[in-house]
Design a protein around this nucleic acid. Structure first.
Lengths: 299, 299
DNA sequence: ATTTTGTTTTTTATCTACAATAAACATTTT
DNA sequence: AAAATGTTTATTGTAGATAAAAAACAAAAT
């Protein structure tokens, strides 16, 4: 097969799930825009909905005949994009315990285990290489550099430089910027989580990511944004497999965030820098403590 | 064809050019190591040298019979790796005047014009995307963001953060580190260029790149190193097509480098930061002045 | 005159195949 | 026994083919 129609299936599921009986559906371009796909795909969805007797479709007339059931939807295995499948499978592998730094990565073997072609695996590895966790020797194999202490320290250094820069930029945003509203909303979310910290401390990592993303967006710098994307993906998987969420640590981080937010709102650059540094120092500690204790990079 | 034997041809040229009549050649593994290729390729080279009557080869006996001539070598078009060919062709294209920001990039068209398969072009574009000059919409085309003023400013911001960090690290290197010797040698090169500035001011960009690379290596941070690689490649092509080399500007930069070197050697962190900032400010000016004056990024 | 639908063309995403290259294994030589 | 050569196997790099998805074009409906 040249290509799976996962875009179609995923969009079909999304659209079918939102249908309500007896409503009339909008025009094809509008449906396409709603779903974020091309009109060709939107038409394919309408065609199938019609064939399944879920809608009646005649030119501009599109009426929902019945509510789709779970059986009408495609199973979730068929809706994941190949890229996501490879990413999940690969991350699981390199964050597992038997993935030693220095290990070779074999494209063909990876492709076979994931059940895909080599081209897709290659392209994934090339894209992934910008995260600094793997490295390639030309005409030869990829090497796993690994989530080591060195990696964490280098990551933390850059994160600190970027965040100090972004925080300073944030402080300079005009007061009518949307970011200030978002920041105030975020304070409320922090307070809400704090009020129920014993139940909700595990949700902190998601909030944490959104908070830092908000700060970084203020810098309007593509290199900073890209780097933060990379961090977010790495942390996403890292914390998914390393359940080291400690209540105390997260509670402290929330307090630091609140101080940080207050400093930003004050607009005082020295205060911003101070609050930012305090938080970054403990974030660095958290990162280092979450490492597998054995891993040390081979020179 | 599945693959060109450019590795072989390039290594063959390199090795043949270094042969001297009547000398005996080392063992196969040693030749392979010298050339940075596998023993298989080294043997292929020996085989051809032997077939061409350039060496006599019998097991461990390998004697050079005659000096290879230019006609024995492969023409340079055949020794360039596909990656380099694509890179050159692509950079030429996007730095040319008719490449407007916002333009679509078509993989198949690019591949046809370069005379290569789509796979290689795709992989190149993926790798190249980390430089921030192009961007992809999934399932759709790449967009050229272009070498715009916005790009230059974002690049300059990150470069400044990284270089201040690297310079501070450099100042902390132990005195017996090789980097200090290299730095001293580099001062001599700067002085030599300055002494003959009217003739040599055009060579400054190469020296400039080597100087900053030396500084950045002190940080031992893979993200900084990667970013500097990206900068170096972009500048390499940018200055190749934009011959804006001004004698006065380069002369001033050399003086700034010399002050910067002196500050590093003093070990005084405040002095280092000051000299670094002075140079970065004028480097930013140079970068902005080198831009094509029309280009402004479309939001 | 726009917007919507119908139809065709272009382009991307992915698989498979195969030569070049690297790496592994076996044998010989020092 | 260590290193070199000889031979075989595994892996990467690249082209070409094809279905999915997007985009462009054409006709019809408001």
């Amino acid at each position: 097969m040249a290509r799976q129609n996962t875009v179609f299936k995923e969009a079909y599921n999304r659209y079918a799930a939102a249908l309500r009986t007896d409503t009339a559906l909008p025009s094809e371009p509008e449906i396409a825009a709603q779903l974020g796909v091309s009109r060709s795909t939107a038409r394919a969805i309408l065609t199938r909905l019609s064939e399944e007797g879920i809608i009646r479709w005649n030119k501009r007339q599109k009426t929902v005949l019945r509510q789709p059931t779970d059986r009408d939807l495609f199973p979730s295995e068929e809706t994941d994009s190949l890229h996501d499948i490879i990413e999940r499978s690969f991350m699981q592998r390199i964050l597992s315990d038997d993935a030693a730094p220095g290990m070779q990565i074999n494209e063909l073997e990876l492709a076979r285990e994931i059940g895909t072609g080599t081209t897709s695996v290659r392209e994934f590895l090339i894209r992934f290489s910008r995260f600094g966790l793997i490295e390639k020797r030309p005409n030869s194999h990829w090497t796993l550099k690994g989530f080591t202490r060195e990696f964490a320290l280098e990551l933390a250094d850059v994160r600190e430089m970027f965040e100090l820069h972004s925080a300073a930029e944030f402080g300079r945003l005009p007061r009518d910027n949307q970011a200030w509203t978002d920041l105030a909303a975020m304070r409320e979310e922090h307070l809400a989580m704090l009020a129920d910290i014993n139940q909700r401390f595990k949700d902190f990592s998601v909030l944490d990511e959104r908070f830092h993303l908000l700060i970084h967006r203020a810098s309007k710098n593509r290199f900073i944004a890209d780097f933060y994307d990379a961090i977010a993906i790495i942390f996403h998987y890292h914390y998914q497999w390393n359940k080291t969420a400690a209540r105390e640590r997260n509670e402290r981080a929330i307090h630091e965030h609140l101080d940080y937010i207050a400093a930003l709102e004050s607009g005082d650059q020295a205060g911003i820098e101070k609050a930012c540094r305090v938080h970054l120092r403990s974030a660095r500690q958290t990162l280092l403590q979450s490492l597998p204790q054995i891993a040390t990079e081979s020179a």
